[in-house]
Simulated scan of single mutants.
Amino acid sequence: MKLTSTRIDKTPEIMIVPMIDIIFFLLVFFMLSTLYMTDQKTIAINLPKAVTAQNDVVKSLQVTVAKDGQIYLGADKMTLEELKSYVEKESKSGQLSMVLRADGEVDYSHFIGVLDEMKKCGIKKISLAAKS
């Protein structure tokens, strides 16, 4: 006569499919929650005015020096003097940053001249573009 044992002879199994479902649920939850973390929602109030208050909006300019030495602001062709006057006018309205792009065959002294003139106009943040 065989006596039944109170011990379980069966080994426990790990259910993979529910675990994958939970991982995907957590992934979606964290992806959606990070979208809402960037936007700060606060209550509406009337802020007081201050004479020394400043906006921290930084405008970025795309300046390109083509192979033939022509200078472009975005897609608009300009001379160096026109670019300087535009930058001086825009720098008075707020902070400027610039991405300076140049063709690989541009004369180095011409490129440095454009870079130097932009620094003289008061642009402190100038990035140089390169292909990765």
Rank of each mutant, 00 (worst) to 15 (best):
Y108V: 15
S85M: 04
Y86G: 00
V87K: 01
V87R: 00
C121P: 04
D68Q: 06
G74Q: 01
V99N: 14
Y72D: 00
T79I: 13
I126H: 05
Y72P: 01
A53M: 10
D68A: 08
I123T: 08
S93N: 15
P18K: 04
V99T: 10
G113I: 07
R101M: 09
G122P: 03
I43W: 02
S5E: 12
G122D: 06
L3K: 13
D103S: 12
K124R: 14
T79Y: 03
T42C: 06
L61M: 13
S109V: 15
M37W: 06
I112Q: 09
S91C: 08
N55F: 03
L128R: 05
V99P: 00
A50W: 07
D9G: 01
E81N: 12
S127Y: 14
L26G: 11
T42H: 04
V63A: 00
Y36N: 08
K67E: 14
L27T: 08
K10V: 00
T4W: 01
I22G: 08
L73E: 11
K89F: 05
L26R: 07
R7A: 11
L83S: 04
I16H: 08
K41W: 03
I22D: 07
T64Q: 12
K2S: 03
V17F: 14
E105N: 08
I123L: 05
I14H: 10
T6H: 12
K124E: 09
Q40S: 12
V17C: 07
A44C: 15
A130N: 08
I22R: 14
L83K: 09
Q95M: 10
L100N: 08
K49A: 12
T4R: 15
I16T: 13
I112L: 03
L80I: 09
A50G: 06
D21A: 14
R7K: 13
L80R: 03
Y86V: 01
S97P: 00
F29L: 12
Q62F: 15
E88D: 12
S5M: 01
E81P: 00
D9Q: 04
H110P: 02
T52L: 14
P48F: 06
L115E: 09
A130L: 05
I20M: 06
S60I: 11
V114F: 10
G69Y: 01
V106Q: 03
Q70Y: 07
S127H: 03
M98S: 05
R7E: 15
Y36Q: 04
D9M: 00
V63W: 00
D68M: 06
Q40P: 04
L83P: 01
M1N: 03
L100H: 02
Q95D: 15
I112C: 02
D116Y: 13
V99K: 07
K131A: 13
V51Y: 05
M1W: 02
P12R: 04
S60D: 06
D103R: 04
K131F: 15
M118H: 00
E88Q: 15
